[in-house]
Amino acid sequence: MNNLKKTITYTVISLTVFVLVWQLYISIFDVPAFILPSPVTVGKEMINQITQVSFYKNMLYTLSEVLLGFALSIVFGLLIGYFIGKHPHIKRLSMPLLVFFQVSPKIALIPIFIIWFGLGYGSKLFVVFIMSFFPIIESILLGLGNISKEMYEYMKILKANRIQILTQLEAPCCIPYILSSFKVGIIQAIIGATVAEWMAGQLGIGYLQSFASSTFNSPLLITGIAFTILLGILLYGGVTLLEHHFQRYQEVKQ
C-alpha cells in the first residue's frame, strides 16, 4: 500500500511538473494556439467533451471494437495456437509463416480490410482481431514448448486423459505467456482501432481525432489523444490485475 501511495504521489508530481513546463513553454516562446494550445484551453475542451453524449458514444464505439475484436482473437488464437502446438508437423510448417506475420506491420492491412469489409464497424473489428491474434498464438506455442518431456510422461503414468492433461498441465503452463501476450495485444488492438477509425468511418475516438485534425481543432485533438492514452492504461491495467490473480503460475517461467 505504501508503494502504491508513493507511486501515485510521484505520478501526480510529474504530471504537475509536465503541465507547468508546458505552460511555461507556450508563454516563453509565444506559440500560436492552433499549434499548441495552453493546458487551460485543453482542460476546458476536455470538460466540454465529457459533458457531451456524443463523446461517450465515440468512446463506447471504440471500446466495443477493441473488446469484441480482442475477445475474438483470444478464442481463435487459443484454439488455433493449441492445435498448431500439439501437431509438430503443422508447427514446423507454420512457424516461418507466423514469424513473417509477426514482423510485418499488420497495420498496413487496414486499407485492404476497409475495401473488403466496408467503412463501418466490421473492418475495424477485423483490424483489432488481426493485430492481437498473432501474439496470442505465439504465446501458446512458447508455453507448450516449455513443458518438459518428463511432465508429459508423468501424466501418462497417472493415466490422465486428454482433458486432464490440458487443464492440469498445459493450461497452467501457458497462462503466464498468454497473459503477457494480452498486454501486448490489447495495446496493439487500441492502435489498430484508432488508426482504422482515422482512415474511415464516422464514429470512434480515432474518428474524433481525425475530425479535430482536419478542422485544426488542437484542443480537441489533444483531448482525443489523452483519452486514447487513458483507455490504453485502463485496459492494460485490467490485464495486469488479471496477471496478479494468476500470480502463482508465473513460476512456470524458469
Partner: peptide, 22 residues
C-alpha cells in the same frame, strides 16, 4: 524420475495430492 517434475505453481501438498485428483 531423476528430475522431480513437480508442478511449479502447486505447493508441496498440492503436488502430492494431484495424482488423487487425476
Amino acid at each position: 524420475f531423476q528430475d522431480s517434475v513437480l508442478l511449479p505453481w502447486k505447493s508441496v501438498y498440492e503436488n502430492i495430492v494431484m495424482p488423487l485428483k487425476i
